[in-house]
């Protein structure tokens, strides 16, 4: 028994002596941007990717909100990972995430009311955003808080750049604007297809095509 704990301690010491940004940890941060992207490869968090990306501004706010929730939830769950009973872990995770989302919702309502109005139910739906639950289940429950934080940051950046790319094309072609400022000449007639969620679906399909033909990922 005592040797076991001793070994464990030695292991712990070894682990903490790992540099804060070792190669493995850098991979946690950079992999989700491309070859392990939450949207295009892991197929998580699609609902909000399609629904909020009509314009860049709400999309940016959504990306920041998801980053805040995912990083904090990852750290909290990872810190609690040894005390959560396995059987009720889903409910514990949901409660932690729901509390964080309630805070984010109130902050947005206070400081950015217009965007909060525009995003309406989709702030609340961060709770069931599969990226959050997926990362909690797959990573935070088995890793230390610092690693979990890096994983959260990496995945939310991977999510953010995809939804920002979609929003960029949708706002540009749909209304000729970027961040609400007109960039295309006055004669440009907005493309209604791009404003509808169906257009977002097709755009995301094409984006996935481009990304996968670049990094060579093939399904099945």
């Amino acid at each position: 028994m005592s040797t076991e704990t001793l070994e464990k301690e030695v292991k712990e010491v070894k682990k903490t002596s790992e540099p804060l940004l070792s190669k493995k940890r850098k991979a946690l941060l950079t992999n989700p941007l491309d070859e392990d992207n939450p949207i295009t490869i892991q197929v998580l968090g699609i609902c909000s990717a399609l629904a909020v990306t009509v314009a860049l501004k709400p999309t940016l706010v959504m990306a920041i909100a998801v980053t805040a929730v995912l990083v904090l939830a990852n750290v909290v769950i990872s810190a609690l990972r040894n005390t959560i009973p396995n059987r009720i872990r889903i409910i514990v995770q949901l409660v932690v995430v729901a509390s964080l989302v309630a805070i984010v919702d109130q902050v947005l309502k206070a400081y950015s009311y217009d965007v909060w109005k525009e995003l309406s139910v989709f702030i609340g739906l961060i709770i069931t955003n599969c990226i959050v639950m997926g990362r909690l289940e797959a990573f935070a429950l088995g890793n230390k808080p610092w690693d979990a934080m890096l994983d959260g940051l990496g995945n939310s950046f991977g999510y953010a750049w995809i939804i920002l790319a979609i929003a960029f094309f949708r706002e540009l072609t749909g209304s000729g604007k970027l961040f609400g400022v007109k960039v295309l000449p006055d004669g440009y007639i907005g493309n209604g297809v791009m404003m509808s969620p169906a257009g977002a679906c097709i755009l995301l399909g094409i984006l996935i095509w481009v990304i996968r033909s670049r990094n060579g990922y093939v399904e099945d």
Partner: peptide, 10 residues
């Protein structure tokens, strides 16, 4: 590269 998710979205 379009197989699976990509074509499903379209």
């Amino acid at each position: 590269p379009l197989r699976g998710l990509g074509i499903t979205f379209i």
